[in-house]
Simulated scan of single mutants.
Amino acid sequence: MHLMMILTALTVSWLLRCSWSNPQGLWQARWRRSLFLFLFPPLLIFMTAIAVLFMGPQGQMGGMYTGWLSYELAFIALTFFAVVCFKLAFQGWQSVESARNSPQVNFEGKQIRLLNTEALFAGQIGFWQPELVVSQGLLQTLSPDHLDSVLAHEQGHYYYRDTFWFFWLGWVRSCTVWLPNTEPLWQELLALRELRADSYAASKVDPLLLAESLLLVVSNKSVLLESGVCCAALGVPGVGDRLEQRIEALLAPPEPTSSDQLQSWHGFMLAFLPLLTVIFHT
């Protein structure tokens, strides 16, 4: 019976991921749909494995005897998830320590880490309380107004705690690369993350200035950090591929704020249904 639960969870997850197609429309609606299809299947698999592990290899469920095979599969899966999490956490810690080797300076009332490089770079590096890292090249190249727009974009990443949440989403990505559309959905979420930070910045500064700054920063191809696991930066690799989309969003009228953000999380509650099966195990 436990093996049937695992196969059912895998089948549902596979079919849901196959239903994804590159969406169009407002970024907020795209964000909700892409996040659900990216996160729900792994969450369903994770909850099923926990339920099987909790019920153990002995006993009955629905009149059918359980066995060691499903229990061992669940244990191996959860162990793999834990190992991947520790690996990514260590890589993230290395990135944070690398950033902290740069001197901390006060810039217009903000504490920033100053990178000694001519490359154009600005990013939040860390987890729940990330630090703003800015390169000397960026400070020397951009005008004060353009620099303010870049810092407003980075403040958007800080406001939404992108470094923290995308660490966990990156963990999900690493654990479920075998599911369909994992990489396209991941790239979509990265692009939407930047659109969301752009939208936040556009409410604070002139969107045209931000668009001009974006053109300057993303044209720089230097890779300053080996790991982006806990980094949310304006000019990270891959963002430039969607440059036109971001420029168009900045120049378009602002999107209305969605009022159903809480309701959008209700669908994730279905992923916890496997935990209810524990009461039927004897």
Rank of each mutant, 00 (worst) to 15 (best):
M1R: 11
G25N: 09
F38T: 02
P41V: 04
L44I: 01
L44T: 02
I45A: 11
A49F: 08
I50N: 14
V52S: 09
M55Y: 03
Y65A: 13
S70E: 11
S70L: 02
Y71S: 07
A74G: 02
F80P: 01
F90Q: 11
W93S: 13
A99E: 00
R100G: 05
N101T: 11
V105M: 10
N106Q: 14
K110M: 12
Q111E: 15
I112L: 14
A119F: 03
A122E: 08
A122F: 01
S135R: 05
H153M: 09
G156M: 00
R161N: 14
F164H: 03
F167C: 03
V172N: 04
T176M: 13
T182P: 00
L185P: 04
R193T: 13
E194L: 01
D198V: 00
Y200T: 01
A201D: 03
S203H: 07
L208H: 14
E212K: 12
N220L: 00
S222F: 10
L224S: 13
S227Y: 03
V229D: 00
G235P: 03
V239L: 13
D241T: 08
L243N: 00
E244C: 09
E248S: 14
L250M: 15
L250C: 13
D260W: 15
W265D: 07
W265N: 08
A271W: 05
P274D: 06
L275C: 01
I279A: 15
